[in-house]
Simulated assay, not measured.
Amino acid sequence: MHRTYSMRQSRAPTASQIQNPPPPSSSTKAGRFFGRSNIGHRFRTGAAGAFGPDLAKKLSQLVKMEKNVMRSMELVGRERMEVAQQLSLWGEGCDDDVSDVTDKLGVLIYEIGELEDQFVDRYDQYRVTIKSIRNIEASVQPSRDRKQKITDQIAQLKYKEPNSPKIVVLEQELVRAEAESLVAEAQLSNITREKLKAAFTYQFDALREHSEKLAIIAGFGKHLLELVDDTPVTPGETRNAYDGYEASKAIIQDCEDALTNWVEQNAAVKPKLSTRARTLSQRRHQNPRQPGEGVDLASQDQPMEGHRETGLWIPASQHAGYEDEDEEEEVVSESHAANGEVRGREGEREEAA
């Protein structure tokens, strides 16, 4: 019997891909120093933030951790495809009904692996956008350092030479440095909010599509199981001949059509705010400057297809300024990674206490 491992030989763009074109292949899928293994995970996490400006260290570590997540998802997707093929090969030697159903189940599981591979590419949109915030943070650090350096020089001169003429010059430089710092900090604040919303919209849209399509596959997979005759037989009794070949093909075709035609507007799961949450979000929307109020979530599910035109989506290859550290830490020793300072907010609170 011919065994199939993929749902369709030629893949035309789905309705979702036409509405929201797929992004470039994930930047984590190429240029690996350690190949496809997980040996670099601890290196990346431990060494994240060891290089570069202090202001960008925490976000650098987040970017590295997300890279670990993406590579783990890649591994899961590949191994799921291999599992699908092995399931189909095992069923080939079973009875007709089990053989046919396991073949079709292998098709569905293989499709899950391919969906996970596509999910990684969309997830990388989120990671790259977060990385752009890190790059902006790194560009702001020099203005902070310059202002702090001038402040320290003034304090030192006032202590050693209170009447030094250099104090006046340094104070003028400090005024200019503070002005530059104010501009940089304002840009950082604005861009951080813009990119944060764009990044997590990418992630949640990708999660939503991925989860809905997994649910579709699971539903059709259960329909396939109904074709297996699990009625107990006595020794020597013969089961009825299997006649579900056309039905199994029709189920696979229906599943393919459901996946192809899925769009976000027809999503089955739609989050609904409680009355209290909606009231608070609307009040916050009407009075944006009042502290302590909720946040307007009414438009959280709007599609992001316009972000390519507005420039919110930036390919990894076009980032300028702060260089990507994702490859640098691959060669850091494991002992350095184990001894690196990785401290969360709890540790900072304990020290403050």
Rank of each mutant, 00 (worst) to 15 (best):
P22Y: 05
P22F: 03
P22C: 02
P22L: 05
S25T: 06
S25C: 04
S26A: 01
S27C: 06
S27E: 10
S27F: 11
K29V: 01
K29Y: 00
A30W: 09
A30S: 15
A30N: 12
A30P: 02
G31R: 13
G31D: 15
R32N: 13
R32M: 10
F33Y: 11
F34P: 01
F34H: 13
G35W: 07
G35I: 10
G35R: 12
R36T: 12
S37M: 03
N38D: 11
I39G: 06
I39V: 07
G40H: 04
G40M: 03
G40K: 02
H41T: 07
H41Q: 04
R42K: 01
R42C: 00
F43Y: 00
F43W: 00
T45A: 14
T45G: 10
A47C: 01
A48N: 07
A48L: 08
A48K: 05
G49M: 02
G49I: 01
G49F: 01
F51K: 04
F51T: 01
F51Q: 04
F51L: 07
G52I: 02
P53A: 11
P53W: 02
P53D: 06
D54V: 14
L55F: 09
A56N: 05
A56M: 08
A56W: 02
K57Q: 13
K57I: 05
K58R: 14
K58Q: 12
L59A: 05
S60L: 09
Q61Y: 13
Q61E: 15
V63D: 03
V63N: 03
K64C: 10
K64P: 01
M65R: 11
E66S: 10
K67F: 13
K67G: 13
N68T: 15
N68S: 14
N68A: 14
V69A: 11
V69E: 06
M70L: 15
M70Q: 10
M70H: 09
R71G: 02
R71T: 05
S72F: 11
M73K: 05
M73W: 04
E74H: 04
E74R: 05
L75C: 03
V76C: 09
G77F: 02
R78N: 09
R78F: 04
R78G: 02
E79K: 09
E79Y: 08
E79S: 07
R80A: 14
R80Y: 13
R80S: 14
M81E: 12
E82A: 15
E82L: 15
V83N: 09
V83L: 13
A84C: 13
Q85H: 15
Q85P: 11
Q85W: 14
Q85G: 15
Q86R: 14
S88T: 15
L89F: 13
L89Y: 12
L89K: 12
W90N: 15
G91W: 00
E92V: 05
E92P: 00
E92G: 06
G93E: 07
G93D: 11
G93Q: 07
C94V: 05
